[in-house]
Design a protein around this nucleic acid. Structure first.
Lengths: 143, 143
DNA sequence: TATACTAACGCAAGTAGGTTGCATTTACGT
DNA sequence: ACGTAAATGCAACCTACTTGCGTTAGTATA
Protein backbone atom coordinates (compact mmCIF):
# COMPACT_ATOMS: atom_id res chain seq x y z
CA UNK A 1 0.00 0.00 0.00
CA UNK A 2 1.51 3.31 -1.01
CA UNK A 3 2.22 6.12 1.38
CA UNK A 4 -0.44 8.79 1.28
CA UNK A 5 1.48 11.13 3.58
CA UNK A 6 3.29 12.10 0.41
CA UNK A 7 1.49 15.04 -1.17
CA UNK A 8 1.62 13.60 -4.66
CA UNK A 9 0.03 10.33 -3.56
CA UNK A 10 -2.74 12.19 -1.74
CA UNK A 11 -3.55 13.92 -5.01
CA UNK A 12 -3.53 10.63 -6.91
CA UNK A 13 -5.84 9.05 -4.35
CA UNK A 14 -8.32 11.95 -4.47
CA UNK A 15 -8.29 11.98 -8.27
CA UNK A 16 -8.86 8.22 -8.38
CA UNK A 17 -11.86 8.62 -6.09
CA UNK A 18 -13.27 11.44 -8.26
CA UNK A 19 -12.96 14.09 -5.60
CA UNK A 20 -12.03 17.66 -6.45
CA UNK A 21 -8.57 18.48 -5.17
CA UNK A 22 -8.41 21.44 -2.80
CA UNK A 23 -5.84 22.53 -0.20
CA UNK A 24 -8.22 21.68 2.65
CA UNK A 25 -8.82 18.18 1.31
CA UNK A 26 -5.13 17.51 0.68
CA UNK A 27 -4.26 18.57 4.20
CA UNK A 28 -7.06 16.48 5.67
CA UNK A 29 -5.83 13.44 3.68
CA UNK A 30 -2.37 13.81 5.22
CA UNK A 31 -3.97 13.75 8.65
CA UNK A 32 -6.07 10.66 7.94
CA UNK A 33 -3.00 8.88 6.59
CA UNK A 34 -0.84 9.74 9.59
CA UNK A 35 -3.56 8.81 12.11
CA UNK A 36 -2.92 5.64 14.12
CA UNK A 37 -6.53 5.44 15.26
CA UNK A 38 -9.97 6.46 13.95
CA UNK A 39 -10.26 10.25 14.35
CA UNK A 40 -13.22 12.49 15.10
CA UNK A 41 -14.03 15.88 13.59
CA UNK A 42 -12.77 17.89 16.56
CA UNK A 43 -9.37 16.23 16.15
CA UNK A 44 -9.29 17.19 12.48
CA UNK A 45 -10.16 20.78 13.36
CA UNK A 46 -7.38 20.87 15.98
CA UNK A 47 -4.90 19.57 13.41
CA UNK A 48 -5.75 22.47 11.11
CA UNK A 49 -5.57 24.98 13.97
CA UNK A 50 -2.19 23.66 15.15
CA UNK A 51 -0.81 24.20 11.68
CA UNK A 52 -2.36 27.66 11.32
CA UNK A 53 -4.49 26.59 8.39
CA UNK A 54 -7.99 27.94 8.57
CA UNK A 55 -10.93 25.68 7.82
CA UNK A 56 -14.49 26.16 8.97
CA UNK A 57 -16.04 23.33 11.05
CA UNK A 58 -18.89 23.17 8.52
CA UNK A 59 -16.33 22.53 5.80
CA UNK A 60 -14.79 19.66 7.74
CA UNK A 61 -18.19 18.08 8.43
CA UNK A 62 -19.00 18.36 4.73
CA UNK A 63 -15.59 16.96 3.83
CA UNK A 64 -15.93 13.79 5.87
CA UNK A 65 -19.42 13.19 4.47
CA UNK A 66 -18.15 13.50 0.90
CA UNK A 67 -15.17 11.24 1.67
CA UNK A 68 -17.50 8.59 3.11
CA UNK A 69 -19.80 8.82 0.06
CA UNK A 70 -16.81 8.43 -2.25
CA UNK A 71 -15.48 5.47 -0.29
CA UNK A 72 -12.31 7.16 0.93
CA UNK A 73 -13.33 7.06 4.59
CA UNK A 74 -15.30 4.64 6.75
CA UNK A 75 -17.57 5.82 9.55
CA UNK A 76 -16.87 4.27 12.94
CA UNK A 77 -18.90 4.61 16.11
CA UNK A 78 -17.59 3.79 19.57
CA UNK A 79 -20.78 4.96 21.26
CA UNK A 80 -19.20 8.21 22.40
CA UNK A 81 -21.89 10.43 20.93
CA UNK A 82 -19.71 11.39 18.01
CA UNK A 83 -18.58 9.76 14.78
CA UNK A 84 -15.03 8.65 14.08
CA UNK A 85 -13.45 8.20 10.67
CA UNK A 86 -10.74 5.97 9.25
CA UNK A 87 -9.31 5.42 5.76
CA UNK A 88 -11.13 2.60 3.93
CA UNK A 89 -7.96 1.17 2.43
CA UNK A 90 -7.00 -0.54 5.68
CA UNK A 91 -8.94 -3.75 5.17
CA UNK A 92 -11.60 -5.31 7.36
CA UNK A 93 -10.77 -5.17 11.01
CA UNK A 94 -12.32 -4.39 14.38
CA UNK A 95 -11.15 -2.30 17.28
CA UNK A 96 -10.12 -3.15 20.81
CA UNK A 97 -10.85 -0.08 22.93
CA UNK A 98 -9.24 0.06 26.36
CA UNK A 99 -11.77 1.54 28.76
CA UNK A 100 -8.97 2.41 31.16
CA UNK A 101 -6.44 4.35 29.03
CA UNK A 102 -8.33 4.87 25.77
CA UNK A 103 -5.76 2.98 23.72
CA UNK A 104 -7.12 1.51 20.51
CA UNK A 105 -5.72 -1.46 18.64
CA UNK A 106 -6.98 -3.50 15.72
CA UNK A 107 -7.86 -7.14 15.26
CA UNK A 108 -8.44 -8.87 11.94
CA UNK A 109 -11.89 -9.92 10.85
CA UNK A 110 -11.95 -13.70 10.80
CA UNK A 111 -15.31 -14.84 12.15
CA UNK A 112 -17.86 -12.52 10.63
CA UNK A 113 -18.28 -14.05 7.18
CA UNK A 114 -19.36 -17.35 8.73
CA UNK A 115 -21.73 -15.53 11.05
CA UNK A 116 -23.23 -13.57 8.17
CA UNK A 117 -23.75 -16.72 6.08
CA UNK A 118 -25.56 -18.25 9.05
CA UNK A 119 -27.79 -15.18 9.36
CA UNK A 120 -28.70 -15.45 5.68
CA UNK A 121 -29.55 -19.14 6.13
CA UNK A 122 -31.47 -18.81 9.41
CA UNK A 123 -33.23 -15.46 9.00
CA UNK A 124 -33.10 -14.68 5.29
CA UNK A 125 -31.52 -11.34 6.20
CA UNK A 126 -28.80 -10.22 3.76
CA UNK A 127 -25.98 -8.50 5.65
CA UNK A 128 -24.40 -5.58 3.79
CA UNK A 129 -22.17 -4.33 6.58
CA UNK A 130 -21.62 -4.71 10.29
CA UNK A 131 -20.03 -2.86 13.14
CA UNK A 132 -18.10 -4.72 15.82
CA UNK A 133 -16.10 -3.13 18.60
CA UNK A 134 -14.63 -4.70 21.72
CA UNK A 135 -14.30 -2.88 25.01
CA UNK A 136 -11.99 -4.05 27.75
CA UNK A 137 -8.55 -3.75 29.34
CA UNK A 138 -5.39 -3.64 27.24
CA UNK A 139 -2.26 -5.64 28.10
CA UNK A 140 -0.47 -2.54 29.39
CA UNK A 141 -3.24 -1.60 31.81
CA UNK A 142 -3.38 -5.09 33.34
CA UNK A 143 -0.04 -4.78 35.13
CA UNK B 1 -39.21 -14.71 32.54
CA UNK B 2 -42.05 -12.86 34.26
CA UNK B 3 -44.17 -10.24 32.60
CA UNK B 4 -43.11 -6.73 33.54
CA UNK B 5 -46.05 -5.11 31.78
CA UNK B 6 -47.91 -5.99 34.95
CA UNK B 7 -47.62 -3.09 37.37
CA UNK B 8 -46.84 -5.26 40.35
CA UNK B 9 -43.96 -6.97 38.56
CA UNK B 10 -42.52 -3.62 37.48
CA UNK B 11 -42.45 -2.62 41.14
CA UNK B 12 -40.79 -5.88 42.13
CA UNK B 13 -38.16 -5.45 39.44
CA UNK B 14 -37.36 -1.87 40.46
CA UNK B 15 -37.16 -2.84 44.11
CA UNK B 16 -34.88 -5.77 43.30
CA UNK B 17 -32.56 -3.40 41.42
CA UNK B 18 -32.56 -0.94 44.33
CA UNK B 19 -34.23 1.83 42.41
CA UNK B 20 -36.70 4.17 44.07
CA UNK B 21 -40.22 3.53 42.82
CA UNK B 22 -41.94 6.56 41.30
CA UNK B 23 -44.87 6.93 38.88
CA UNK B 24 -42.54 8.09 36.07
CA UNK B 25 -40.27 5.10 36.50
CA UNK B 26 -43.13 2.60 36.67
CA UNK B 27 -44.64 4.00 33.49
CA UNK B 28 -41.27 3.95 31.74
CA UNK B 29 -40.77 0.32 32.78
CA UNK B 30 -44.06 -0.63 31.13
CA UNK B 31 -42.85 0.99 27.93
CA UNK B 32 -39.49 -0.80 27.98
CA UNK B 33 -41.23 -4.11 28.58
CA UNK B 34 -43.72 -3.62 25.75
CA UNK B 35 -41.05 -2.44 23.27
CA UNK B 36 -40.23 -4.87 20.48
CA UNK B 37 -37.02 -3.00 19.59
CA UNK B 38 -34.44 -0.87 21.38
CA UNK B 39 -36.01 2.54 22.00
CA UNK B 40 -34.54 6.04 22.08
CA UNK B 41 -35.36 8.87 24.47
CA UNK B 42 -37.61 10.74 22.03
CA UNK B 43 -39.76 7.62 21.75
CA UNK B 44 -40.06 7.41 25.53
CA UNK B 45 -41.06 11.08 25.66
CA UNK B 46 -43.72 10.51 22.96
CA UNK B 47 -45.11 7.57 24.92
CA UNK B 48 -45.61 9.79 27.96
CA UNK B 49 -47.14 12.57 25.82
CA UNK B 50 -49.54 10.16 24.09
CA UNK B 51 -50.81 9.04 27.47
CA UNK B 52 -51.08 12.58 28.83
CA UNK B 53 -48.53 11.91 31.52
CA UNK B 54 -46.13 14.77 31.97
CA UNK B 55 -42.43 14.08 32.34
CA UNK B 56 -39.61 16.48 31.63
CA UNK B 57 -37.01 15.42 29.02
CA UNK B 58 -34.29 15.97 31.63
CA UNK B 59 -36.06 13.49 33.89
CA UNK B 60 -36.14 10.86 31.15
CA UNK B 61 -32.45 11.33 30.33
CA UNK B 62 -31.65 10.99 34.03
CA UNK B 63 -33.91 7.95 34.29
CA UNK B 64 -32.20 5.99 31.51
CA UNK B 65 -28.78 6.79 32.97
CA UNK B 66 -29.82 5.50 36.40
CA UNK B 67 -31.41 2.39 34.85
CA UNK B 68 -28.18 1.65 32.94
CA UNK B 69 -26.10 2.13 36.10
CA UNK B 70 -28.38 -0.22 38.02
CA UNK B 71 -28.26 -2.82 35.26
CA UNK B 72 -31.92 -2.60 34.29
CA UNK B 73 -31.20 -1.23 30.80
CA UNK B 74 -28.46 -1.77 28.25
CA UNK B 75 -27.18 1.02 26.02
CA UNK B 76 -27.28 0.29 22.30
CA UNK B 77 -25.84 2.38 19.48
CA UNK B 78 -26.83 1.99 15.84
CA UNK B 79 -24.68 4.93 14.75
CA UNK B 80 -27.67 7.23 14.41
CA UNK B 81 -26.28 9.97 16.61
CA UNK B 82 -28.49 8.96 19.50
CA UNK B 83 -28.51 6.21 22.09
CA UNK B 84 -31.05 3.40 22.20
CA UNK B 85 -32.01 1.37 25.26
CA UNK B 86 -33.24 -2.15 25.85
CA UNK B 87 -34.01 -4.23 28.97
CA UNK B 88 -30.95 -6.20 30.12
CA UNK B 89 -32.95 -9.32 30.97
CA UNK B 90 -33.20 -10.35 27.32
CA UNK B 91 -29.93 -12.26 27.11
CA UNK B 92 -27.00 -11.74 24.78
CA UNK B 93 -28.03 -11.05 21.22
CA UNK B 94 -27.26 -8.77 18.30
CA UNK B 95 -29.47 -6.77 15.96
CA UNK B 96 -30.19 -7.03 12.26
CA UNK B 97 -31.14 -3.54 11.10
CA UNK B 98 -32.83 -3.25 7.71
CA UNK B 99 -31.45 -0.17 5.97
CA UNK B 100 -34.49 -0.10 3.71
CA UNK B 101 -37.47 -0.22 6.10
CA UNK B 102 -35.83 0.20 9.51
CA UNK B 103 -37.10 -3.13 10.80
CA UNK B 104 -35.00 -4.60 13.58
CA UNK B 105 -34.72 -8.26 14.48
CA UNK B 106 -32.46 -10.15 16.84
CA UNK B 107 -29.95 -12.94 16.41
CA UNK B 108 -28.41 -15.01 19.19
CA UNK B 109 -24.80 -14.54 20.21
CA UNK B 110 -22.95 -17.71 19.26
CA UNK B 111 -19.54 -16.74 17.88
CA UNK B 112 -18.29 -14.00 20.12
CA UNK B 113 -16.96 -15.99 23.07
CA UNK B 114 -14.57 -17.87 20.76
CA UNK B 115 -13.51 -14.60 19.17
CA UNK B 116 -12.91 -13.02 22.56
CA UNK B 117 -10.84 -15.98 23.76
CA UNK B 118 -8.72 -15.63 20.62
CA UNK B 119 -8.21 -11.92 21.28
CA UNK B 120 -7.01 -12.69 24.81
CA UNK B 121 -4.58 -15.28 23.45
CA UNK B 122 -3.28 -13.23 20.50
CA UNK B 123 -3.26 -9.70 21.89
CA UNK B 124 -3.48 -10.10 25.65
CA UNK B 125 -6.49 -7.77 25.58
CA UNK B 126 -9.24 -8.75 28.05
CA UNK B 127 -12.65 -8.12 26.52
CA UNK B 128 -15.29 -6.91 28.98
CA UNK B 129 -18.04 -6.16 26.47
CA UNK B 130 -18.63 -5.75 22.78
CA UNK B 131 -21.10 -4.18 20.41
CA UNK B 132 -22.09 -5.94 17.22
CA UNK B 133 -24.81 -4.79 14.84
CA UNK B 134 -25.56 -5.97 11.32
CA UNK B 135 -26.92 -3.70 8.59
CA UNK B 136 -28.58 -5.06 5.48
CA UNK B 137 -31.85 -5.98 3.80
CA UNK B 138 -34.55 -7.93 5.63
CA UNK B 139 -36.42 -10.84 4.03
CA UNK B 140 -39.53 -8.74 3.48
CA UNK B 141 -37.67 -5.98 1.60
CA UNK B 142 -36.00 -8.46 -0.79
CA UNK B 143 -39.22 -9.28 -2.66
C1' DT C 1 -48.15 6.68 61.79
C1' DA C 2 -45.47 10.81 61.95
C1' DT C 3 -40.90 12.53 60.79
C1' DA C 4 -36.88 13.54 58.45
C1' DC C 5 -33.51 12.72 55.02
C1' DT C 6 -32.26 11.76 50.57
C1' DA C 7 -33.31 11.27 45.99
C1' DA C 8 -36.39 12.39 42.03
C1' DC C 9 -38.65 15.96 39.58
C1' DG C 10 -39.59 20.24 36.74
C1' DC C 11 -37.84 24.15 34.72
C1' DA C 12 -34.49 26.83 32.45
C1' DA C 13 -30.13 27.50 30.68
C1' DG C 14 -26.21 25.64 28.53
C1' DT C 15 -22.96 22.41 25.77
C1' DA C 16 -21.57 19.61 21.90
C1' DG C 17 -22.08 17.33 17.49
C1' DG C 18 -23.79 18.12 13.27
C1' DT C 19 -26.62 20.49 9.31
C1' DT C 20 -28.22 24.08 6.14
C1' DG C 21 -28.91 28.43 3.39
C1' DC C 22 -26.57 31.84 1.07
C1' DA C 23 -23.00 34.67 -0.89
C1' DT C 24 -18.24 34.27 -2.47
C1' DT C 25 -14.28 31.91 -4.15
C1' DT C 26 -11.90 28.31 -6.54
C1' DA C 27 -10.84 23.96 -9.20
C1' DC C 28 -10.76 22.28 -13.60
C1' DG C 29 -12.72 20.84 -18.27
C1' DT C 30 -13.17 23.24 -22.56
C1' DA D 1 -8.24 32.30 -20.56
C1' DC D 2 -13.05 31.36 -19.54
C1' DG D 3 -17.35 29.48 -17.68
C1' DT D 4 -19.52 26.52 -14.61
C1' DA D 5 -20.31 23.61 -10.97
C1' DA D 6 -18.64 22.60 -6.77
C1' DA D 7 -16.09 23.93 -2.43
C1' DT D 8 -15.69 27.28 1.20
C1' DG D 9 -16.81 30.60 5.06
C1' DC D 10 -20.08 32.45 7.91
C1' DA D 11 -24.15 32.55 10.57
C1' DA D 12 -28.11 30.52 12.06
C1' DC D 13 -30.17 26.52 13.34
C1' DC D 14 -31.33 21.65 15.11
C1' DT D 15 -31.16 17.66 18.04
C1' DA D 16 -29.16 14.92 21.77
C1' DC D 17 -27.83 15.43 26.10
C1' DT D 18 -26.32 17.72 30.69
C1' DT D 19 -26.46 20.63 34.79
C1' DG D 20 -27.83 23.86 38.57
C1' DC D 21 -31.39 24.89 41.57
C1' DG D 22 -35.60 25.13 44.07
C1' DT D 23 -39.47 22.02 45.10
C1' DT D 24 -41.76 17.63 45.72
C1' DA D 25 -42.12 13.00 47.10
C1' DG D 26 -40.40 8.09 48.32
C1' DT D 27 -38.83 5.45 52.11
C1' DA D 28 -36.22 4.19 56.28
C1' DT D 29 -36.44 4.92 61.09
C1' DA D 30 -38.44 6.00 65.42
Amino acid sequence: MFNLINNHDCKTELKKMEVKITPVRLFAMKFFESAKQPVDVSEIISYFKNNNIKADPATIFRLVNVFVEKGILKRIDFGEGKTRYELSNKGDHHHLICTNCGHIESVEDSHMSNFEAEIKKDKGFIVKSHSLEFFGICLNCQS
